[in-house]
Amino acid sequence: MLTKRIIPCLDVKEGRVVKGIQFVELRDAGDPVELARFYDQQGADELVFLDISASHEGRKTMVEVVNEVASELAIPFTVGGGINSLADMKRMLRAGADKVSLNTAAVLRPSLITEGASFFGAQCMVVAIDAKFDPELGSWRVYTHGGRKATDYEVIAWAKEAVRLGAGEILLTSMDCDGEKDGFDLALTRAVSEAVTVPVIASGGAGNAAHFVAAFRDGLADAALAASIFHYKETSVEEVKTFLKSEGVNVR
């Protein structure tokens, strides 16, 4: 049976992991490779690296980070942030990333998804969607530019369109739940998961192990992503997986 995936997300800026990571046992908690290894040992199924560098130099450093992670680790990982062209995708995939994630760039130029999918295969094209509920719309609206800009897209319509264009996976972040630690947005996750044929990663709102159970059972997510609860050691990948198993959710 295919297992549900737990995916820690690491924000990388100028080649260093940011967001105060509290691991006393690590020599250098800012080193992406060391953190990646730590999560791998804990049983993380995949990793996501989000490049939040603002500078060109920072982006170049990200390629080195990707190269190093791929050299050291035998688990799959996705790179997102600042990927705007086929050349950007190529750079990351050649450096050893397994998938690239497109967010704003895909909304601004949807054909980029198709270009990437036909060149590298749909399996490495992740489309990341930042979603926020809009009462007027009666549904969720797609936001871009790190959640700062509202678009005309409704989330489910955009998710379906992204898959039609060649997305192999949807990384779905709830802006309403993100940072609240009150659980994933189950209605949103379920709506998207039922609407598309590709796997959906639930993101935003993880606060404890039970939230992951709900994301899989009620949200019908195929994978769940979290950052701060793992980074701040509120729980560990290992604990989450043990709990999932005890609840009858299939994990590795």
Binding site: T3, R5, D45, E169, T197
Partner: peptide, 18 residues
């Protein structure tokens, strides 16, 4: 096919399987 006996299965088959 993406389904078995009415149950949908995601395509691609993506992730860890035994």
């Amino acid at each position: 096919s993406g389904e078995k006996a009415g149950t949908p299965y995601k395509v691609p088959h993506m992730g860890w399987n035994r």
